[in-house]
Design a protein around this nucleic acid. Structure first.
Lengths: 180, 180
DNA sequence: CTTACCATGTAAGGCGTTACATGATTCA
DNA sequence: TGAATCATGTAACGCCTTACATGGTAAG
């Protein structure tokens, strides 16, 4: 189990806090991490099997009425793996912004078309920002309940600040391109 | 040739401006796009072959002394492909920030360790920021020479603003975690 | 009764990186 | 003569997404 595979560490990180099913892991990622990380069921379930194979987690089948759930628990080795990864220097932070690509090549499509793309980007950001602001309020309210909240809050603040910067940039860019 | 493959469009975008070799394409990407996109030789060369196969570009062999170069030129169809892509709504803007992941799971490693990661992130940003500032100055100086410069400048401004926001966040985060 | 959500998984295929392999040129 | 840069390419392999496939439960 190579340490380079991030999804392992993401899942272990979530399991370090609480036991979870694959489905719940997907939810946690979509709710809290999606602003800087994402994963699909097609990668989560196979990865969970690998974690069990490598004894970094254990699987427990639970019957909930007629429905079967697999609840995963982190092991000592899993916690150790997570610790090692957390202490290692970051390998790569990666941005893949298609919007920026389209702005970069904007001369080919013209200012009008580029403004359309920027406005659409701005809209997406403005739609998502309220969720981040809501998350911030919530975390601040329940700050004392869980030590993890402080760390979650930091990532939320990162998101808010970045998004507000994006909106500012969008406005500037639209103004500059509008002058043509 | 599916429109979803971004590297095609990146290369076509660069070729729309000037004829280039694979090696030069790699350089352009590393110099100007790396803040929001990247690519390796292992993907660039095969993609160039595909572009030629699909008649979106042509290949011309040139002898430079004893050395062989392949110079690629965009075709009409290639320009059309690029146009179509530029007009399509953005499919996905994607962030994969390992640093944020390590902050999110910071409770597992503790405040001290998390601060180390944030400081290292800050350092990287501070190291790269001068190149962006330099690029900005340069582009502003030669603004009239090429209409593409305006668009390049917008992406540079995006980078500068984002990076300055990151540094601000790093300082706040270090302060908050330092209080523990 | 049907929609949304809970829940798990597989298969195909794409995209991309790293490492390997090769060789010319330029400059110190 | 050795390092850096110019220049091209392949092979192995990993990671991930999409689409497919299945079925229970809850609420309206």
């Amino acid at each position: 189990m190579a340490i380079e595979k991030k999804l392992d560490c993401v899942i272990l990180g979530l399991l370090a806090h609480e036991e979870l099913t694959g489905y719940e892991i997907k939810n946690r990622i979509d709710k809290s991490l999606k602003y800087f990380w994402n994963a699909s069921f097609g990668s989560i379930y196979p990865t969970l099997n690998q974690l069990v194979e490598n004894k970094l987690a254990t699987k427990r089948c639970v019957k909930d009425g007629n429905r079967q759930k697999n609840i995963y628990t982190i092991t000592k080795e899993g916690k150790n793996h997570l610790q090692v990864w957390l202490r290692q220097p970051v390998v790569k932070d990666e941005l893949r912004y298609e919007t920026l690509l389209k702005v970069f090549f904007g001369n080919e499509a013209g200012a009008k078309q580029t403004i359309v793309q920027i406005k659409s980007f701005k809209q997406k950001i403005e739609d998502e920002l309220p969720y981040l602001l809501f998350a911030k309020e919530n975390l601040e309210k329940h700050m004392n309940q869980d030590k993890t909240h402080q760390y979650y809050l930091l990532t939320v603040i990162f998101g808010i600040q970045t998004y507000q910067g994006y909106i500012k940039w969008c406005n500037e860019a639209i103004k500059i391109l509008g002058k043509e």
